[in-house]
Design a protein around this nucleic acid. Sequence first.
DNA 1: CGATTATCCTGTGCGC
DNA 2: TGCGCACAGGATAATC
Length: 271
Amino acid sequence: MPELAEIETLRSDLQAEFAGYQIDRVEVSGRRSVRRHPDAAAFTRRLLGRQVRAVARKGKFLLVHLDSTDVLVAHMGMSGQLRRVEAGSPKSLHTHVSVSFAGAFDLHFVDPRTFGQMFVSNADLPELAHLGPDPLEIDEARLGGLVASRPTKLKVILMDQSIISGIGNMYADEILHAAQLRPDRPGRDLSPADISNLSAATHRVLGEAVARRGSTLADRQYKDLYGAAGTYQELHRVYAREGKPCSRCGELVARSRSNGRSNFYCPGCQR
DNA sequence: CGATTATCCTGTGCGC
DNA sequence: TGCGCACAGGATAATC
């Protein structure tokens, strides 16, 4: 699933491919992918003729800053993919938005399950105001402040985008394993040493995942701008590894369920 | 407040 | 071989 590492990979490639180029054509199929707007025309109108200044990221949201005061915002949801394709390429199945750049490639937004979306907002981005800080941009003390006061389970805290933004189910499980902390540990039970481990694990796991251009699972739902897979899944220790031996202690990886989500963890070395 | 559940959606993979 | 269904989970709303 596209989480922080996958979105960051898209961000850097989008920046390299499209910064400085002007949007000269926008095609929207259906309304659902641009559902924040009253209709597709309201979305398209604010993009046509605009030049891309820079591409940023906030949590799992991509922010394409334009030469107006507007920002094109994209969220991949569960199954969204962005693809750089040759100009004028036909839209494959589930391609909901196509953006053409003058004298350059087209950008296709493909999203079978339609949980993703695109919209244009102003520079203040009120739609994203609820998001917490990026986990890569906060230090141990700041993370401790966000976690240590809460009675909530660690897994829930890590995945709550209003507390920290960018971590989903997959990286939450990997981070907690790296920190040797159980997903159901209440945040306020953590010792200073636990907080230290959690902070280090967060930076290590997400940093390495970005370096490896994200995780592409068996379902192939994530591919990068060029259709290539990431490789961080090769380093997964627990996610989708139920019943396999833990790489740290040899105990079998367990799976529990809460909030309608799977939790993969090692009962042997996560406390 | 926190915890839990339902909703949206389609492709996949399992059991029978 | 084919059918039906559970599952995958990001964000949000509703309910307890």
